[in-house]
């Protein structure tokens, strides 16, 4: 859709810091994501990856720093501005976060119902279309979320995220809790959507297989900072001991030492 090279990143995070109580979670995160790029943030559990992407969609307010999305600084925006921006964004939550009081199609069409004047019939038609895009048949559209398996829930969550044709999609641990095959199905879906919809995305994960597969660039979050950014190849052959330990999944290394001391 937009193949002209751009110099300005679509998402720019500058010096983002956030603490909860006395716990400093993010401590000056800098990250840039160009339009159309798939950025994957890796890092251990509890290192603040979720906190990071929740800032990008305005669910959390930074203590310090800026988050500039499409040229607008989210951290200084009012609710109305943020909500306007959110209508160009979609987010897939870790456990899909489907509304369990609504059937699948109403989950997918939720945004359309809230923000457009489309009739229920039209919304359902669009919802079925989106479900098809994530590989679900229209039979599931009337099922309640509680009757779905984990992989199906994620797919419905994905359909909900793309229902408004977003420019930006955020994935919070898209493959966590899925069996390896289902995880790969989700990976393929993410790549397919990336190509088809030309979206810009940030994913967070600790699943390296998934990271290598879906990423254009990988960033490693460690102790509240981004310690390295690069292409999957660069990350795979990184000299940084922390990165090396993490991507190889070894229990021995600088990260363990930190964990023990804490």
């Amino acid at each position: 859709m937009n193949s002209s090279p751009e110099t300005e990143p679509l998402i720019r995070i500058e010096g983002l810091s956030k603490s909860f109580g006395s716990k400093q979670v993010l401590n000056g995160v800098d990250l840039e994501v160009m339009r159309g790029q798939s950025m994957v943030v890796i890092g251990g559990s509890g290192t603040g990856k979720s906190v990071l992407i929740k800032h990008v969609i305005g669910l959390l307010k930074p203590d310090a720093g800026r988050i500039v999305v499409a040229g607008q600084d989210i951290s200084t925006m009012d609710m109305r501005g943020i909500n306007k921006l959110r209508r160009k964004m979609g987010m897939l939550f870790q456990n899909a976060a489907l509304f369990d009081s609504l059937p699948v199609w109403e989950n997918v069409g939720f945004s359309l119902k809230q923000h457009t004047k489309l009739s229920g019939k039209e919304i359902k038609k669009i919802a079925v279309e989106k479900l098809k895009m994530v590989g679900l048949s229209d039979e599931v559209s009337d099922v309640m979320p509680s009757d779905l398996s984990g992989g199906m829930r994620k797919r419905v969550g994905l359909a909900r995220a793309i229902a408004v044709d977003p420019e930006i999609i955020l994935y919070d641990e898209p493959t966590t809790g899925l069996d390896p095959i289902m995880a790969d199905v989700i990976n393929d879906l993410i790549i397919a959507l990336q190509k088809k919809l030309n979206v810009t995305s940030i994913s967070i994960t600790h699943d390296m297989t998934s990271a290598y597969k879906i990423a254009d660039r990988i960033a490693m979050l460690y102790q509240g900072k981004i310690i390295e950014v690069g292409t999957p190849e660069e990350i795979r052959s990184s000299d940084n001991e922390i990165v090396r330990q993490f991507v190889s999944g070894s229990a021995v290394g600088p990260i363990t030492v930190e964990v023990m001391r804490a």
């Binding site: 929740k54 969609i57 305005g58 669910l59 609710m79 909500n83 306007k84 959110r86 209508r87 964004m89 979609g90 987010m91 939550f93 870790q94 456990n95 976060a97 489907l98 509304f99 369990d100 939720f110 945004s111 809230q114 923000h115 909900r160």
Partner: peptide
């Protein structure tokens, strides 16, 4: 339950108060 399963966050990301 909606809070701890992130459904309230999800509402917000769908630009709904």
């Amino acid at each position: 339950t909606m809070r701890v399963t992130e459904q309230i966050d999800a509402l917000e990301t769908l630009a709904t108060n």
